[in-house]
Simulated assay, not measured.
Amino acid sequence: MKLADAVARYVEHKQSMGMRFHTERRTLKSFCQWLGETDLAQIEPDPVRAFLAGTGPVTRFWQRKHEVLAGFYRFAVARGYVTNSPLPRTVPKPSQHFVPYIFSLAELKRLLDATESCEHSRGAMTAATCRTLLLLLYGTGLRISEALSLTLADVDLDRAFLVVRESKFYKTRLLPIGPDLQGILSQYLARRPGDRAADSRFIVSRTGTAVSRAAAEGTFCRLRQHANVLRHDDARYQPRLHDIRHTFAVHRLVSWYRAGADVQRLLPHLATYLGHVNIAATQRYLTLTPELLGEASERFERYAMGGHHD
C-alpha cells in the first residue's frame, strides 16, 4: 500500500470519530511530501528520523511530529498495512523549555504605532485592520484562528459580546467585551471594506476578503521588526502573534493582584474566557514575569505577616 493511501485512510478514520484532525493532517501531508511516492512497507528508519529532526535543535515540535506518526503507525500495524514501525524508540528531550514572550505595555504601544506602516506596503491588511486585530487579540485573549473566523453575525456590538463558534475543543462560547474594545470594533466596522452579509468575516483584507492566518502572521512579523520588538534571550523564536494571548492572561492576573481580587477564585473564570477545558491549561499560559512575580510575592508576604488573604 502506498503511504499516501494509508494516510488518507487514517485521516478519514479519525475524522469519522468526530475529530477535526487538521494539524495532524498537515503533519502527515508533510511526511508524505518528504518521502514521496513510496510504499508504506518500504519506509526505513533513517528518512523518518530525518523528517523528525528537521533543522535546528530538538524542540516540542519534534515531539508533536513523533506523536502524530506514532498514532499513524499504530493504526497501520493494527490493520496489517505494515508489521512494525520505523519510528525511533527513544524520544529525546527538547534542548530547552519554550517560554512564550510577554509583551510589555510599551511594546504593545510600539506595535500599534507601527501599524501605520501597513498603509505604505503591499500587504493584504490595512493599518486599520492591523490595529483592530491587535487590539481584539489583546482585549479578548482569542486564538488567532478564532479572531479571524469571527463573522459579522458573531460580533454583537449592541450587546457588547462576541460569539466564538466551535473553537479548538468544539465548544461555542460567548465573550463579553469592555466599552473601549466595543468602541474600537464599532469604528472598524464603520470603515470596514467588503459586503455586509451576516456570514462575512469581520476582519477582512484591503479587498474585503477573509484574512488567512499566514497573512496575519506575516504582517505581524513585519510590524514586530518595524517596532523593534525583539527577544534578546537564547529562544529559538522571536515574539509571535500568538504570544498576545499569553500576554492577555498574564496582564489580567497582574491587574487582579493589584486590585486585591481573589485570584484563585477568578482563575476558573479566566480559563472559561480563554476557552480552556481546565485550569491546568490556563496555568501553562501564566508565564512568570518580574511584574507578575512581584505582585504574587507581595500578596504572599502580606499573608505570611498575618494580613488578610485576599
Rank of each mutant, 00 (worst) to 15 (best):
R9Y: 05
Y10R: 02
V11Y: 00
V11P: 05
H13L: 15
K14P: 01
K14V: 05
Q15M: 06
Q15Y: 03
M17C: 09
F21G: 07
T23K: 11
T27I: 15
L28M: 10
W34D: 11
L35E: 04
L35F: 05
G36T: 08
E37P: 02
E37F: 04
A41M: 12
P47N: 07
V48M: 05
R49W: 10
L52N: 09
G54Y: 00
P57H: 06
F61H: 15
W62Y: 15
W62G: 06
Q63Y: 01
F72P: 14
Y73H: 01
R74E: 15
A78F: 02
G80R: 04
N84T: 14
P86I: 04
P88Q: 01
H97R: 15
F98A: 09
I102D: 14
F103L: 14
F103I: 09
E107A: 06
E107C: 08
R110L: 09
L112W: 10
L112A: 14
T115P: 05
E116Q: 11
E116R: 08
E119C: 04
S121E: 12
S121V: 01
R122A: 10
R122V: 08
M125R: 13
M125C: 14
T126R: 13
A127Y: 02
T129M: 15
C130A: 12
T132S: 06
L133I: 12
L136R: 03
L137T: 06
L137P: 01
G139M: 09
G139V: 07
T140R: 03
G141K: 05
G141W: 04
L142W: 07
S145I: 06
E146A: 03
L148K: 01
T151P: 10
V155M: 03
D156H: 13
L157F: 08
V163Y: 10
V164L: 04
V164A: 01
F169I: 00
K171Y: 05
T172K: 04
R173P: 10
L175N: 05
P176L: 02
P176D: 08
L181Q: 00
G183A: 12
I184M: 12
G194Y: 05
G194T: 07
D195W: 04
D195K: 15
A197C: 14
A198H: 02
R201I: 00
I203V: 14
V204S: 01
R206A: 07
R206G: 01
T207E: 10
G208K: 03
V211R: 07
V211K: 09
S212A: 11
S212D: 13
E217Q: 15
L223I: 01
R224S: 14
Q225A: 15
A227F: 02
A227C: 03
R231K: 13
D234M: 03
Q238P: 08
I244M: 14
R245P: 00
T247E: 12
T247F: 04
V254A: 03
V254P: 06
V254T: 06
W256S: 05
A261N: 12
V263M: 04
R265W: 04
L267C: 00
P268D: 02
H269N: 12
L270K: 09
G275T: 10
H276N: 07
A281Q: 15
Q283D: 07
E291D: 11
L293T: 13
R299C: 10
R299F: 15
F300M: 14
E301I: 08
M305G: 06
H309V: 15
